[in-house]
Nucleic acid binder design. Sequence first.
DNA 1: CAGTATCCGCTTGGATACTG
DNA 2: CAGTATCCAAGCGGATACTG
Lengths: 125, 125
Amino acid sequence: MSEKGVLNHPFRKGELLDLNCPSREILQHIASRWGILVLIALDRETLRFSELRKKISGISEKMLSQTLQTFEKDGFIHRTMLPVMPPHTEYRLTPLGLEVYEQVIHLSDWIELNLPRVLNAGKEA
Amino acid sequence: MSEKGVLNHPFRKGELLDLNCPSREILQHIASRWGILVLIALDRETLRFSELRKKISGISEKMLSQTLQTFEKDGFIHRTMLPVMPPHTEYRLTPLGLEVYEQVIHLSDWIELNLPRVLNAGKEA
DNA sequence: CAGTATCCGCTTGGATACTG
DNA sequence: CAGTATCCAAGCGGATACTG
């Protein structure tokens, strides 16, 4: 996925910095308190609500539900409800959501790998 | 330096999903309301406070100041104050900050490029 | 110009109760 | 199990006024 074009910015850049750019809203959804963690948790897996809650430690039912709904509306997550009792609901990334995942995983991996450097830089500053 | 073994498990995923992982805090800083936009705005440029405010349309003085201070502590941004009147202060990315920039620009570019697909997916869902 | 101080509303998130 | 509804406390974020 070495699309050189992206890093060279052949397309229009900086629209995100414009207050009225609709990309801002999508960025907000992804870079919300739990957005990136939900995307990472669904890494090519199909998970149920309770499994997601366990995997993303610290998230409340309310915020998980809210984040999942937002992503479902954005088309990043597919929700499958099985009409059984007790209820069984599954969540997985859509192809579009997988693309988003592939972008945010760069950031997530960088943070985990470079945390010592960041903490050290923080001390020096 | 083998306290948490972060460096020893470069491909381990999911530590971010742990409530007590210190990476969570750094992620919060970056994926805060204005974090990514500030990083993008400083794209290899040296800018003053007022220039940043103009470039990142919609940001308040308070949040710009707060975001800059957080990133300075994290070692992502370098601040240079010139002792002149009126005050002159410059901000630029540190080498560490540039690395973070290179991760988030993936996400930013993807959103701007694929916004039509996202908006369309939203309608269908 | 480069911020800080202040006030205020919205969001976040926990706890709990309830439904299908 | 998979949520929704409600209340409440705390913190985040925004607008404005003010200072060196």
